[in-house]
Design a protein around this nucleic acid. Structure first.
Lengths: 229, 229
DNA sequence: TAGTGGTCTAGACCACCCC
DNA sequence: GGGTGGTCTAGACCACTAA
């Protein structure tokens, strides 16, 4: 068996761990590494590229490849559909539409979604349950100028996040995580008391600079979101 | 100019957006695509692999390549050193060590870091300031069996997170995000009132299955963490 | 078992950018 | 200017797995 790019990655990582390659150290060029490992340059190249993707190495033409001095590890989050998030844990998913209104866009939302004054916005509020427990309260605004079809869908049986993921492609998105004290309304929906610390996600998506949707997701108390590095 | 893997990715993404390739649709095999685009199979392969990495496509041997039916988008976070996070915004960084004790490992920590009973643990508590405002309160435990050098460092002038990144270059880790109501102590450190919702990050890192460190990071009120998709 | 993706090769040309 | 990584090729063999 030849040296594969997996092997090369493992070897380089070992050398970084045992300090043979300390942070900031330069690696040999691809041609030298290929000779050392007895493989083609393309194989070395693939291993190096993946280590760059993983935030371990830095490369510059002419300057060469080196170990990142502050190894900025990157965490990868997948943004699942709420229904799948719940059913994947073996619990039963229940969805309830609370309110469904067409409004004219308020100023703060116009700025965020980059829409013109008085354009119609669909405002939805819904609850997602895991078994009998509240899981997430979703406060969502959809730009009807960007997604006119949303006006014809009733969202009684399917949540807007799931519908949007299926129906509307997007080019860019932003996620913001924070903690908020539950308002009286949010506390009621999430079956907790006023002021409880609530893990909150704000999500905005755009399709070619046109704002598509903005949502605030309030999770049940003590909700944790985790990821491996 | 030949068709590059960038071009191929762009073409496939366009076809997905304009519904030529709806969710769940099968793509032609690599050989056919290579013919269609007039390039080598390896070029097509690279484009396809990257689209898989980005969560757009799914591939299985024999079965072929298809558009993911629920396009799970993935968000990337970089986890910077606190000092850099603050100085990057142009603010002045200040660090204060509050407490520094060697203790025997409590049960909950033994389980988390996978260490034996009565092994010594370094417990550090520190504050990070942005200008004159509290930025983050750090409650950190370091497994001295994994990092004996930590016992000789005084952490007066450099925070443990920065020191660890430099001394323990490569580790596996877990990140957990949540919201907590500030305890009296945390509220005091962060200059806010009891019960304020605090965005909290827990970070655990391992080196070859040996727990290295566990930290709870409490951010100042209204702190937001954001990322682009 | 046959078709698909997974990987590797040996060579080539090129773009970039530090020296 | 010259060395480095970035990319592409045409071909090959292999591993997995759906049919």
């Amino acid at each position: 068996m030849r040296t594969s790019y997996h092997d090369i990655k493992a070897i380089v990582l070992t050398r970084i761990r045992d300090n043979t390659l300390p942070p900031g150290a330069n690696l040999p060029g691809e041609i030298d590494l290929a000779k050392e490992f007895g493989c083609a340059r393309a194989t070395v190249n693939r291993a190096m590229r993946e280590l760059v993707d993983e935030g371990i190495l830095e490369r510059k033409r002419k300057a060469g490849t080196k170990v990142k001095s502050s190894p900025t590890r990157r965490a990868l989050f997948s943004i699942p559909i709420v229904r799948e998030e719940i059913t994947n844990t073996g619990q039963k998913y229940r969805y309830v539409l609370i309110a469904n209104d067409v409004i004219s866009s308020p100023g703060w939302l116009r700025a965020r979604l980059n829409v013109k004054k008085d354009q119609p916005i669909l405002h939805l509020r819904c609850m997602h349950y895991a078994g009998s427990d509240p899981y997430q309260f979703e406060d969502r605004w959809i730009n009807l100028a960007a997604v006119p079809r949303a006006a014809d869908f009733d969202f009684e049986d399917m949540g807007p996040n799931e519908w949007l993921v299926r129906e509307v492609p997007f080019t860019e998105g932003e996620l913001v995580f924070s903690a908020t004290n539950a308002s009286n309304e949010v506390a009621n929906f999430l079956d907790t008391s006023d002021g409880t610390a609530i893990f909150t996600v704000e999500r905005t998506t755009w399709l070619d600079k046109l704002g598509v949707t903005y949502a605030r997701l309030y999770f049940a108390r003590d909700h944790k979101m985790s990821t491996r590095l």
